[in-house]
Amino acid sequence: MSKKSLVVEHLKRAQMLDVLTKGVRLDGRGLLDYRPITIETGIIEKANGSAKVRIGNTEVIAGVKVQTGAPFEDTPDQGLLIVTAEVLPLASAYAEPGPPNEDAIELARVADRGIRESGVVDLKELCLVKGKNVLAVFIDVSVLNVDGNLFDAVSYAAVAALLSSTMPKYEVTAEGVKDTGKTIPLPVKLTPISITMVLIGNTIIVDPTLDEESVMTARITIASADKNTICAGQKGNPGGFTEEQVMLAIDTAISKGEEIRKMLKKSVGHGKKQK
């Protein structure tokens, strides 16, 4: 929890509720409008894939590193895919260096579930020698500037970085696994998209700013793998949703997710051509 003044919080809530009942938000957006989203890929040469995503003033950067590793005991024929997220101390006056707090842990775990559980990468294709050598895909996301909706920014950056990522081509020889020095595209199957909504008063809005997050009662993040499949969900913050609100959130996540999926694929496509 960042330190906020209770008085300001209460005043802001009143003002925000007032405009929300008219169907607009303090920054002039409609209830289901995102702030402008920009996605750049291929910005870190040393990474196998990378992306910088801005949603309004929220800014995050993701990098993909692919290396060899040992598989988990219970999945000997599958590679690894790990998503981490960190709010850097330079990202906000309230962020501090040191071990991640519970908000940062939740952020990383929700992003990880949204991406891994969707089956975005066929992990069987990352197996080199069953039970011994597999490829491990690390997607590390760093938050550079905090202005609300970190969940979606982290998720889009991770997915954009994955889509633009290559992996080293390995050869399995009698002596073991050898790097051929060549790269091939990462076998990405899907484009999972997370949509975060918050409840202020009785109104659900998407893509909250930091100001909006400071007065929300509850948050819900739903990730979809495609237009018919939900692959992750997380309700957050002290507050509840009615059944109708949950259903509305699911429908919004699916329709809005499809919109953003198209946009994200297009941006990543442009990035690839420029290379």
Partner: peptide, 13 residues
């Protein structure tokens, strides 16, 4: 009110 909701895995609508 729904006060805890998490989901992982794949579910259709």
């Amino acid at each position: 009110q729904v006060t805890l909701l998490q989901l992982d895995g794949r579910f259709s609508r």
